[in-house]
Design a protein around this nucleic acid. Structure first.
Length: 554
RNA sequence: GCCCCUGUAGCUCAGUGGAUAGAGCGCCGGCCUCCGGAGCCGGGUGCGGGCGUUCGAGUCGCCCCAGGGGUACCA
């Protein structure tokens, strides 16, 4: 349990006791939320519960209520001091003794440090990237990939049973356009006249892909009937693109548990099942030769086509079947979809269709990542798969490195549009927060190596000797880590991690400057070795959640 | 037009209705007899505008202004 939660519980207990004793009227308790005061001097945690209670408990003043609560506060090893401050805050200072002992707790927890218990273990699916296999990943895909993989890590750390999934659009009209483009490029590569379809993919990577295929397969597709050639060649091209995608993802540390085929939804009649259910419930209408989902019946602005007048299902049809599969067939308790800003219009429709299927829409969380504007200096680079050449994710990774790429993408909340200046990212490669954090880890590793070389063991180090301000500040900051994991897991907000890791690294560097670890004082040396070992664990675990490396040397 | 996201320091961005709004970069000064100077210490400027709700608003509501995205029988 985090200190935060424990203090919150103490407050609730105090309020209940005060009411039982008649010192406070029996009223409903507001959330006993506890926060870190912005300014030092107000303790480690502060609660404004008395201010919130004062309205209902009139004519009691908030300050008096705070005093009453403090007087009923149960004894606790965690709290060193609980003070009342106007206009009615209760400020808690952690006990030094308890703080010191947490070093042992952290070292004992090791990789598990930071794990939190949200009270229930749910089966959670995080679906992300899911880019169509029609071209290389761009930086927008990269943002989703990094956000999704980190969020999955965080949820796992918070005790959830997490499945990471990539939805592969291996059917549909965009793939069809990809097939036709590749066919044209293939014929061009073999010296034939061929025109790129108007709705095709103009990027030069398509010519490269066609060239690769000619090199390995020759002209054998020309000897097939055209329809057959188109499909056979297309499948081969798609497989190669998927390989590119997998390679890029691996290079930024993103792995999936499941690659889910859109096509399989039709082969396994998931679509038929979902569709019949919708029909049964009266949400299907036929009009203008097409089949529609009656979204307007559930408050949407317009109905949505599910089956086109030419008989082919739309993307939305697949999405209905896919989410039916997620919730009903596979039984996920919660599903988190991470989509790009261009899918924003689908959010409500998706939630509405879940209601229509009888699935509680609150079980689906949809995160929209806002656009990434790629820049090189002041020059804006337009991202579009369809209008020609693009800066791919691969190029960005090669330029700035996977760790830096992850850190920068993670540091911004998904809601914020962001500028990614390649020139700047490269320039900053030394003065970069990424290295600042990793350097702290490497520095600790170096200290521990030095200690090992000198044969200093610190298992028996006495944490009671840790008493100076820099030491205790470092411990305090480490203890925020589990709280942060909980915050990020509950709010689906990974962007707190980079900020936290920078703060933790900063406090460590400051400690390092002020406190010599390996000194003539054997006992203090051992105690401090234990402390920096704990700090190394905290840094490593934070970096690990972010999918970054924690280098022993730099 | 309607819907969604965003406007916080020169720049890039944090900020769970609370007390004196933060970080990094950039800029200007300091700090290496000592475990890694990719480090430390100091220096300053800001919540787009207005009206509300509240004991208390950067945070919630409404209106306005600005930027971006969506609004297909594309995905």
């Amino acid at each position: 349990m985090t200190a935060k939660k424990e203090i919150s519980d103490l407050l609730v207990a105090a309020a209940q006791q005060a009411m039982a004793a008649g010192d406070l009227p029996s009223i409903a308790l507001p959330d006993a939320t506890v926060e870190h005061p912005q300014k030092s001097g107000f303790g480690d945690y502060a609660s404004s519960i008395a201010l919130k209670l004062s309205r209902a408990a009139k004519p009691r003043q908030a300050l008096d209520i705070a005093k009453i609560l403090v007087s009923h506060l149960p004894a606790s090893a965690i709290v060193g001091q609980a003070e009342v401050a106007p206009p009615g805050f209760i400020n808690f200072t952690l006990s030094d003794n308890w703080l010191k002992r947490q070093v042992e707790t952290i070292v004992a927890a090791g990789d598990e440090f930071g794990s939190v218990d949200l009270g229930k273990r749910e089966k959670v699916q995080v679906e992300f990237v899911s880019a169509n296999p029609v071209g290389p990943l761009h930086v927008g895909n990269g943002r989703g990939a990094i956000l999704g993989s980190t969020l999955a890590n965080i949820l796992a750390k918070a005790g959830q049973e997490v499945t990471r999934e990539y939805y592969l659009n291996d059917a549909g009209s965009q793939l069809d356009a990809f097939f036709r483009t590749l066919w044209a490029r293939y014929r061009q590569a073999l010296g034939q006249e061929a025109e790129i379809p108007a709705d095709g993919y103009a990027g030069t990577y398509m010519s490269d892909l066609a060239g690769e295929i000619v090199a390995s397969e020759g002209d054998r597709f020309l000897r097939l009937p055209e329809a057959e050639a188109l499909t056979a060649l297309g499948q081969l091209g798609m497989a190669r693109i998927i390989d590119w995608i997998k390679t890029d993802l691996r290079n930024i540390g993103v792995e999936f548990d499941v690659w889910f085929s859109e096509k399989s939804l039709y082969a396994n009649s998931q679509f038929d099942q979902a569709f019949s259910l919708l029909k049964e419930r009266g949400y299907v209408v036929e009009r203008e030769g097409a089949v529609w989902f009656a979204s307007t019946a559930l408050g949407e602005d317009k109905d949505t086509v599910v089956i086109r007048s030419n008989g082919t299902p739309t993307y939305f049809a697949s999405d209905i079947a896919y989410h039916y599969n997620k919730f009903v067939e596979r039984g996920f308790d919660r599903v988190i979809d991470i989509w790009g800003a261009d899918h924003q219009g689908h959010v409500n429709r998706m939630k509405v269709v879940l209601s229509a299927l009888g699935i509680d829409p609150s079980r689906l969380g949809i995160l929209i990542t806002q656009l990434v504007t790629l820049k090189r200096g002041s020059e804006v680079i337009k991202i579009s798969k369809r209008t020609g050449d693009i800066i791919t994710l691969r190029e960005v990774i090669e330029e700035v490195g996977a760790d830096a790429c992850r850190f920068f993408f993670l540091a911004r909340s998904a809601d914020s549009q962001m500028d990614f200046d390649l020139a700047l990212a490269k320039e900053q490669s030394q003065e970069n927060p990424v290295y600042y954090v990793q350097y702290a880890h490497a520095r600790i590793a170096s200290i521990l190596r030095t200690a090992a070389e000198k044969g200093i063991g610190y298992e028996d180090g006495d944490v009671d000797l840790l008493s100076t301000e820099p030491e205790l500040t470092l411990i305090r900051k480490m203890l925020e880590f589990p709280e942060l994991v909980e915050l990020a897991a509950v709010n689906l907000e990974p962007h707190h991690l980079p900020h936290y890791s920078q703060e933790l690294a900063g406090i460590f560097h400051s400690f390092y400057k002020q406190c010599r670890v390996i000194s003539e004082d054997d006992q203090l040396t051992k105690a401090r070795l234990k402390l920096v070992h704990a700090a190394k664990i905290a840094l490593a675990n934070a970096l690990d959640l972010m999918g970054m490396t924690a280098p022993e040397r730099m």
